[in-house]
Design a protein around this nucleic acid. Structure first.
Length: 262
DNA sequence: AAACATGGCAACCGCTATCAG
DNA sequence: TCTGATAGCGGTTGCCATGTT
């Protein structure tokens, strides 16, 4: 990606080089041009849109930029525990169908979910020296990671209930302007996890909807999570101290799991 | 303080599916 | 039916910020 940004809208006629398609990171000017054009004329026909908008980008690049970054409803930044849990459950059922998974997480893009999976989940699998798709790793997810997420969600909901009255309800879920490498705290979840699970997007096919309904809720709704070996929560590291998605188990956890596999 | 290593993620690539002419 | 354009998907790459030595 040895692309070098160049100011758009130069008064001098474009050189041969400038007429070539640009690649690499988008500039603020390009973002503005694309956003203005899509706002005025709508999406679709990305190749011709790119030309008409005066962008020296492929239609593909414009589409990707819009969908993953510029869309007004796109949410970026920290993946909440609810979202993590949903991603894990949906991946169990759908595999690497990132776009399908993304449809169940409003504002999240397939790219972001894919990146989350590769950087966070696969990292844990690597630490455990097992394949991310292996039964062993899945069992670990179910018996350790997911129960902790549920626990975390419950703690958050109970504490947020206590502090709700002090919070300003105006915090937006989706910034009108995208925030690069957002460092803000996770937004308040405005939807019920269970409710979301039981109401998949309208675009989902009937069969898919049936397949998604009830994802993960069988053991979440008040029941004990599957816990081979009688897993206890006490004495475990506080996984919430260093941000969402940090390592959810300690070395002892890994050792414990490996013993159970023997 | 500098060099190096690592992780996160934006963007690209190649491929397939879909649709219109 | 065929063909080209477009949309969409999943995998991969490489830059950059951050952490570590």
């Amino acid at each position: 990606m040895e692309f070098q940004g160049r100011a758009c809208g130069s008064a001098t006629p474009p050189s041969e080089e400038e007429m070539e398609l640009r690649r690499g990171p988008w500039t603020a000017d390009e973002d503005l041009m694309l956003m203005n054009y899509v706002t005025a004329h709508g999406e679709g026909r990305w190749n011709s849109l790119a030309r008409r908008a005066g962008l020296r980008r492929t239609g593909k690049s414009c589409r990707l930029r819009w969908l993953n970054y510029l869309r007004p409803d796109v949410r970026r930044g920290n993946i909440t525990p609810e979202e993590q849990l949903l991603i894990l459950e949906l991946h169990f059922r759908l595999g690497n169908r990132w776009s399908k998974i993304a449809r169940h997480l409003p504002g999240r893009t397939d790219n972001e979910i894919k990146n989350y999976w590769r950087t966070r989940v696969q990292k844990q699998a690597k630490q455990l020296r097992c394949d991310v798709n292996s039964k062993q790793f899945r069992d670990i997810l179910r018996s350790i990671w997911m129960p902790r997420l549920v626990e975390r969600i419950r703690e958050a909901s109970s504490s947020s209930a206590a502090t709700a009255m002090h919070q300003n309800a105006a915090a937006p879920l989706a910034p009108t302007r995208p925030v690069h490498r957002a460092a803000e705290p996770p937004p308040t979840m405005e939807y019920s996890f269970e409710a979301r699970l039981s109401s998949p997007p309208a675009s989902e096919s009937v069969t898919e909807s049936r397949g998604i309904q009830g994802v993960g809720v069988d053991w979440m709704q008040g029941a004990q999570p599957p816990s081979p070996g009688g897993y206890a929560f006490s004495g475990l590291p506080d996984v919430d101290q260093s941000g969402w998605g940090e390592s959810l188990w300690s070395v002892e956890d890994i050792w414990l799991q490996q013993q159970q596999q023997l």
